[in-house]
Nucleic acid binder design. Structure first.
Lengths: 206, 206
DNA sequence: TAAAAGTACGAACGGTCGTACGATTTCTTT
DNA sequence: AAAGAAATCGTACGACCGTTCGTACTTTTA
């Protein structure tokens, strides 16, 4: 930041780089990122781009962080402001997530999906960062389910982890199938599955 | 094949190569395959290994094909022999699939999961082959569900595609989460979800 | 056993990879 | 406007990439 609040030039460049990196990573993975290609795409010199990160791994970690922030911006933030806590927010979060997938914000679909499948079996800092993002999102959903249970909007006997597992299954599956078969029908299937599952989790005596 | 039915030497080498390729691809993706590395791992010359496939892409396609065959061997074949058609076979297929994931037949988990996430957004022959494998498996499950419906073991009003979508969601999710968090609990969640979902699909008047 | 087919090798190619470093340009602050 | 910091560039490096080619060895066929 400058003294009068503007962004430093380098900081703007960095964002430009990471925006492009997210596009590439969503379609071709974090491993598909290459310094030379990124520099070529943005008409920068390899060394100039490299200087922003210091190593390939730092670039990849920055990309994971950017993916996390983009997900929060696109999916979580709009809901946090609009929906009431509890079941309404849970439903809104899932709808927002599905809508974000449908919008194809990134060319390869949800970038978090792409990179978590890519790094799930490769221990190291990148996998840790991916797992942390993934876990934070699932944790947020878990908290929201708990809130809904506490309010009596979902059955008190609900197995929270099990419910979150099933709900997220549908959406991740829609992410994967939707891109692989280039068909939005899976988004409808996911929405249908989500709503049926939530119906089944309603309090018995309601 | 030789005239007396034995395998040619080259054919054996090819299998050795593809076995190793499957291990690598399951953990690091088809893009993580490199001719030099594969040759080094197996103490072959790069050019000797290369000659078996003629190009990198052919090697990758052969690996996809090998993944498909391994999946059939590990998951489908044992069930086809043992279980009755219909619901029993459906349940056996899902159990067999989950068990295959649990056994960690490949170091990176289900190799089909890894490569379908890797190539879902990259049009070309490889994606087509991956989608075909994926689609064949889901198609087999669909047929099995239909058989169970025809026998009256599942409700006549069952939305077959929707049911298959949900059932496969659970298992694929278990594949991904299980490896990412290195925790078998997700396999239990998937099994629980599968059995609850099938219970819900039973005929109403039974 | 000789010919043919199949298999594997080593060396070399042009390219791209990530990285390093010093020079140079551009911006920010004083 | 001068000084200092920040950002970018050009060049070079060693390593590995996929691929080609000519050669040698092994196995199968006739």
């Amino acid at each position: 930041m400058t003294t009068d609040g503007r962004l430093l030039r380098g900081e703007q460049t960095r964002r430009t780089i990471l925006d492009r990196a997210l596009d590439i990573a969503s379609a071709e993975g974090l491993e598909g990122l290459s310094i030379g290609r990124l520099a070529g795409d943005l008409s920068l010199s390899k060394s100039g781009l490299f200087a922003h990160f210091g190593s390939k791994e730092e670039l990849q970690l920055a990309t994971v962080q950017a993916a996390r922030e983009a997900f929060v911006d696109q999916v979580v933030r709009p809901v946090a402001a609009a929906a009431e806590p509890g079941l309404a927010r849970l439903e809104a979060l899932l709808a927002s997530w599905l809508d974000y997938v449908r919008r194809r914000v990134f060319p390869g679909g949800c970038v978090l999906y792409s990179i978590s499948a890519e790094y799930d079996a490769r221990p190291g800092r990148i996998r840790d960062a991916v797992a942390a993002s993934h876990g934070a999102w699932h944790g947020h959903l878990r908290d929201t389910v708990r809130e809904a249970v506490a309010r009596g909007e979902l059955d008190a006997a609900t197995d929270v982890d099990q419910l979150v597992f099933e709900l997220t299954s549908y959406v991740w599956q829609a992410c994967g199938n939707g891109v692989l078969y280039d068909d939005d029908v899976f988004l409808d299937r996911a929405r249908e599955a989500v709503s049926a599952r939530l119906r089944r989790a309603r309090p018995r005596s309601a």
